[in-house]
């Protein structure tokens, strides 16, 4: 398993395609918490895979004013088809060319497999990683850790 970036580290900025003709940079989201969810691949063959689960609980992220970004090495067209099929209501970023470059910066690229880890990062409004977690590749990490981390951000912010 790779060693992912830890809490306290500034989140490396990136700009990746979200649609065939549109790019999104992490720095554009400064001022809001961001949840960055690396996952190995679109089209995993289970009901309620990681992205479908996050899609179901988007309102929980919105309640906390957080932006959710899914990210894998799949290309934009693949993401577009997957997103449409699963009716996803949040952006999927294509870490496609050079393949896995962003995942690599976060320590979340599996060189041998050519896919990203199942790695989660909660980034605060100033662009600092406040929580990160790398799940075994076969285990969907769920959302409890993310929500706990977002809640911790809010309680800190309130002080």
């Amino acid at each position: 398993m790779s060693s992912i970036l830890n809490a306290g580290t500034p989140a490396p900025d990136f700009s990746l395609h979200v649609t065939p003709d549109q790019k999104l940079a992490l720095s554009e989201l400064r001022g809001k918490p961001v949840v960055l969810a690396f996952y190995p691949a679109d089209w995993s063959p289970v009901c309620g895979d990681q992205m479908a689960l996050y899609n179901e609980i988007l309102s929980e992220f919105q309640k906390r004013d957080a932006e959710l970004l899914g990210i894998s090495v799949d290309g934009v067209w693949c993401h577009a088809a997957f997103s449409k099929d699963r009716k996803l209501h949040f952006p999927l970023l294509a870490d496609f060319e050079p393949k896995g470059a962003v995942a690599n910066q976060y320590g979340a690229y599996r060189e041998a497999d050519g896919v990203t880890e199942r790695a989660l990062f909660v980034i605060d409004k100033d662009g600092i990683i406040r929580w990160s977690y790398c799940s075994p590749i076969g285990v969907n990490p769920g959302a409890d850790g993310i929500l706990d981390a977002l809640d911790a951000l809010q309680s800190k912010g309130a002080k």
Binding site: G48, D49, Q50, A52, L53, I57, E60, G142, A143, L147
Partner: peptide, 21 residues
Amino acid sequence: FSGGVRSGVNGTPTFFINGQR
């Protein structure tokens, strides 16, 4: 559903055995 999310339910079905996923 919400209780499940906070408990780390990650898809269906998810089982807990004596509270451990």
